[in-house]
Nucleic acid binder design. Structure first.
Lengths: 220, 220
DNA sequence: TAGATTGTTAATCGATTAACAATC
DNA sequence: TAGATTGTTAATCGATTAACAATC
């Protein structure tokens, strides 16, 4: 069986290329080379071509890539040909921030439900959504065909919320903090741990102070 | 010149080991082997030993590691022997969420200042802090010796805020969104782009649907 | 044809894992 | 000594980069 063997970093870069190309497209650029993309986003031209090569041949030798076509291909690869309904569980500050974040909608991620179990928050309006009780999750997930859930609740509630989402049919979760969520194998989970990010910063700050002679610039 | 050549992933894992060991320490565990740490956090025993080996010899052959000692070593490596004052710029939902996040304080990151340029937000209280105008950044940074800044402002204001922070003496920045911040070479920047995280999820969801035969479980 | 740029292979670089001597 | 586990080297695996034939 042939198997998908693409570095996850490649997917992240495809997303970056895609945004950069959309920008160029808006400015009327019609054709671009791997070298120009590379320069625009800060990677090597070989990297750009390799990343694309995992998925097909999208360019013309001697000419480069048609910007509009390449955007279309990238969107197809990334699954961005249609909008994705998303639910956010947790209507605290983080949940509210996520609902208000324009970047999601700009890329086709539509938040179609916000949930909480705090009676003080239920009924509140966030953007154009009403905060619903957690019990309504299955209903909303089914109604909109939601496959992605964002969990923005206190650490001790994360697993419980994950269980509810998975049971409702959600197939991918974005979580925060340091909780290792247990999910069935078909569910894809990615976690963002802000504290680890800060600890990486402190490591570098501390290390270059204590070992200036062995310091190596770590940026990107 | 000998040079620091540690994968950044190693630093992240050291942070994870450290938290796991602290948990064990609380439960009275005094000694632990690389295999037990590995099992506890979900990596290979060789990985644990290799990660530690970059920084020294902390165990006893045939015995394992002393939990309390190892925690101390890890804290020293990560630079967590003292608390780190941090400033947050932007008192919107995200900034407020970050100020309220207990995880930071638990690991020694003390938010000593929140700033905004919105007159409606200045003077507001977040936790035990008053939102200050952006003009106060240099003063607070100097007063507390702040070296780390978190930027939680709208995309178009990120570079400007970064300039102010760097000018005030901040040496490390955590940013959100997709803006490439330009900073002098001594400043360390790490960015969190939530949209890319969602696009990685959509890629996997989309791909396993369109190419079920080549699907490979991507989790961790 | 000459110049440019892709797609792809081979070389390099880097990180993880396996294996084992050292040693408690 | 026998058993266990580290620290480290060598082998493996995977990702990036260099180089170049293909081709517009």
């Amino acid at each position: 069986m042939k198997v998908l063997r693409v570095p996850e970093a490649t997917i992240g870069r495809l997303s970056v290329y895609s945004r950069y190309l959309e920008q160029l497209d808006k400015n009327g650029v019609t054709t671009i080379s791997s070298g120009e993309i590379a320069k625009g986003v800060g990677v090597s031209p070989a990297q750009v071509r390799k990343d694309l090569a995992y998925f097909g041949e999208f360019g013309t030798r001697g000419v480069g890539y048609n910007v509009k076509d390449l955007i279309r291909y990238l969107h197809r690869i990334l699954g961005l040909t249609h909008p994705w309904p998303v639910v956010v569980v947790g209507a605290g500050n983080l949940g509210t921030a996520l609902c208000a974040y324009r970047g999601f909608r700009d890329r086709g991620f539509h938040i179609v439900g916000v949930f909480d179990n705090d009676l003080l928050k239920i009924g509140k309006r966030i953007q154009d959504l009403e905060v619903l009780p957690v019990e309504k999750i299955p209903e909303v997930v089914k109604e909109h065909g939601v496959r992605i859930g964002i969990i923005a609740v206190p650490q001790q509630a994360v697993q419980e919320v994950a269980n509810i989402l998975v049971k409702s049919g959600v197939e991918a979760l974005l979580t925060f903090g340091s909780v290792a969520v247990r999910v069935p194998p078909h569910v894809i989970v990615r976690n963002i741990d802000l504290t680890i990010k800060l600890e990486i910063l402190t490591f570098y700050l501390n290390f270059r102070e204590t070992h200036p002679a062995t310091w190596l610039e770590p940026n990107i």
